[in-house]
Amino acid sequence: MEVTLGQVLALLGAAMAVFLPGIGSAKGVGMVGEAAAGVVTEDPSKFSQTLILQALPGTQGIYGLLTGFVVMQRIGILGGNLLPLTTYQGLLVFAACLPIAIVGLLSAIAQARAAAAGVGIVAKRPEELAKGITYAAMVETYAVLALLASILMLFGLKLA
């Protein structure tokens, strides 16, 4: 089978949709984890509350993987029958991956900062955990919007 440039570009898009938000989430979850470990060193009873906050920046990685799967399904790589994409089709798929790739990376880190601040709330006023979660969850909006944009574009493309 002849590999086309379009196929390469489409797969590159899928890869970016997975790895960039993945990096962001790994960094973000790590950051909140460090701050949470500091609090738990002094007060082990705060473990479960801080764990919730730590998980928040992890969603971007999942959105990226989801987008990657949609691309793989759309270009037929999942069934083993890669579609013969033209260069322009490949570029379209690549473009559709950009929103979640870039917003996923940056929003995960931004969310981690808000969540790390939330860890500070838990340290001082554990009863206000919900407020800390809400502040961090606001950042989620933009990751969801980027996911939505990427998915809508991918489903709208005519590839076959």
Partner: peptide, 15 residues
Amino acid sequence: QEFLYASGRIRALET
């Protein structure tokens, strides 16, 4: 970011 752990610990100590 090098201060994350220490800052978390301090948040608890500040109380």
